[in-house]
Nucleic acid binder design. Sequence first.
RNA 1: GCACGCCUAGCUCAGUUGGUUAGAGCACCUCGUUUACACCGAGGGGGUCAGGGGUUCAAAUCCCUUGGCGUGCACCA
Length: 907
Amino acid sequence: MKELSKAYEPKKYEDGIYKRWLDSGFFNPENLLNTKGQYVNILPPPNANGEMHIGHASGYVVMDLLGRYHRMKGEKTLLLPGKDHAGIQSQVVYEKKIKKERGITRCDLGREKFYDEIFSFCKDRAQYMREQEKKIGLSADWSREKFTMDPELVKVVLDTFVKMYNEVDKNGNRMIYQGERIINWCPRCFTALSDVEVEHLEQKAKLYTFKYNKDFPFSISTTRPETKLGDTAIAVNPKDERYKKYIGKIFEVDFVGLPLKIKIIVDHEVDSTFGTGALGVTPAHSAVDWEMARKNDLPIIKVIDEHGKIHEGFKKFSGMPVNEAREMIVNELREHKLLEKEEDYPNNLSVCERCQSAIEPMVSKQWFVNVDHENFSLKKAARKAIENDEIKIYPERFKDVMLNWIDNIRDWCISRQIWWGPRIPVWYCARCEDDRNNISKVSFTNDSNHANIKIKSRVGKIPVAVGEKPLVCPVDERHGNNMLFQDEDTLDTWFSSGQWAYSTLGFPNGKDFKEFYPSDMMVMGRDILPFWAFRMIIMSLYCTGQVPFKNLYFTGLIRDEKGQKMSKSKGNGIDPKEVIEKYGTDAVRLSLLIGNSPGNDLNLGEEKIAGFRNFTNKLWNICRFMLLNIDKPKADVKKPVGKTLADKWILLRLNDVASQVKYCIENYNLSMAGEKLRDFTWGTLADWYLEMAKIEGKKSEILNYILNNILKLWHPFMPFVTEQIWQEIYKDENCLMIQKYPEFKLSSNGSAIDEFTSYIVDIITSIRSLRADYKIEPAKKINVAISAGQAEKFLNSNEEIIKGLARIENLKISKKLDKPQGSIGFVSFGVEVFIDLLGLVDTGKEKERLSKEIAAVEPYLIGLEKKLSNQEFVSHAPKEVVEKEKQKLSEGQEKLKKLKEQLKNLI
RNA sequence: GCACGCCUAGCUCAGUUGGUUAGAGCACCUCGUUUACACCGAGGGGGUCAGGGGUUCAAAUCCCUUGGCGUGCACCA
């Protein structure tokens, strides 16, 4: 058997190991033999337009750890990978690309060509990202990989649209309906957005206070004077005495040369202390005003168009970008002395989550999902599933966050005016339009980004068919199908990804769906909770009648070492490619697992990764050393009987750490699982047991047993190094990846072994410490005498270990002996240890050392005495606690007595 | 405004139903090539657990409160 090389070099092995796993076929659950139970994780699909970043990696590491753990436990394990088409984002990315590389816009390509190109672009990126996912060690079944735009997935999505459209309550309301409502419009992306796709940025704005004209009785305040062209009312608080006499009146005013008809209305929402207490109502461009308009039946005047310019019909302002119009109106008001105040005012600007352009709220005809439909309330169903823990959420506190979020949700706008994504399966017939004016109005524009895009009229069309394109117009066959046209819009990406949990499994009749749905685990970034978690839950409950997954684990964000968000522009990002190359995948995995906890952000710097690279190498060397001491390594060694105290102790500790690790993993405390394993491996095994084993010798069997187990226990955390070691030793065996995970139960009666060992460890550590204090050269051997009392026998049987690890020449252990001349002593548990200092004793120094220790013990004992003399404590506290305190007191008293004696003898 | 967190060693954080003289890693200081490992070993310094109050025999842990930091949602005329 050849030795392991001196240092572990990840680069040398990782690709080969991954290939071996792939070739084994065990990523595919069908190939796993003799499975019992199953474990399914439909992996969240990253957007197929970029590359894997460290945030993805942190999620994958969790998913893969759990997957490998369950696979090794013998469960039929499926990690199903895939990619998301990411409608708006991919379209933005691809538009930028063709603009830069070819100087063209999507309109130059046309809808079909653009669609085809972006499809292959996403497929290319998906392939590239797949290679990165393999680098992180993801043990996914690539034969089942999916893409949200695969035809079979799109079919599921469209079928759901049809099903929801056909869900009609007794009043004729559909679950999916078309409505003219106020929505968020991004003039850059040229599409409607749902509420969650809008971000709010703090900005300094100006708050203008003015009158429409000098005849109008009172002034209003606004940050957006240009929208006032569309005001149809003034709202005041019903309790506001100042304006009571005007309520209900209608004023016709001239506002910067344009006529306005203003009704005075009341609304409780109006804060009479803000500004003048009078609010100009602009129904077409403010969500709150829109609601007021609906309640008061006010007319709605659209001021701003889809390009962010003033609509036709506003004379000199028409066609002007909003900012220019604002400036012009303000100037005009100033000239006419109507502007009363102009003050700085911090407010939040709504911007597009994808491109950061300012959002225009506007009234528009869009498709919506009614989240509280009478036949099936998506929101109530989701609430119930979460409340009843049908989906368990980690960390638990996110349950409240989700419930709070569900309670505030409003109808979901699912239509997008983009080309990339599944197109809404709704058909209209030009001939069937009731109102000829409403037939597909087409307008053209000169906007550079959106040249020649058709803006279809979003008013008044009635679908004639929903679903596949009919052969003839279903309303009137004489119209045939050449008068049929499909809705121009595509579906919100989250309408697709919301169905990922089952569309990937061949819903509704596929074999995988029947076998693997619902899945066991979903791991997702906490930032997409409102986008995705909620949508997956509602869609799944409605379509499949079941929850999509039984457990939901949220990861936090990965930040830089200073806690700042990683971003390309700041250049503070950690690129997984680079750090994997530099430190190896296992080190990167550990740095994302240990010290990280569900839902919390993680600050990550390269130093941390380097630390785990060191540990990877340490593990390699621990195994290297063990191998040097194993005669003929076997993959299936039974648990040996420990011969010495050290053996019994390490078996006990291995047993306990393994059962704790299992407990931690099953409760998703992966960080603690890793920490416990590391402490055992480095602190217990390497620093103590292996050193003891060097002295005791003949450890072949037990080392073999520990080696096998430690590789298995570490495998889910650091699959590459463990597999490589396994392969070096057991070439002919199956991969470590599918070896049986060790089963251990927490031992009940090992405390005596632990206690004895801690005596020895403490004696050795104390001797080393005093040696260092007295600057005794490490190579120099010393003489030690121990007055051992009860511990005589077992200290004697471990004499060689104490001698070896404390570098002792002559060790004398007796039940009772006096302090030898020229020595110094210390007390460890009940044992007195004397070190012959070879004439180096410094009485002053000793006095100080002993006094210092006495000074530390005394207050501790006083505390204990006080506690134990307190009747309340003795009667209230559990017996074990009281017993423990008593024992601590008597041990401490014994120690104090001995220390005092030593001090006395010194003088 | 509503909600959810966080504040423990210089730094990053553990501390799971209240009960060890409060822990780890990194950094720092001293020393050091003995059957693996300098990506290492041995030893060491360093914290009144943000402040105040309360509950309790017992509080880093539970409750209230003040301050600081962060996040989500809403408002933002």
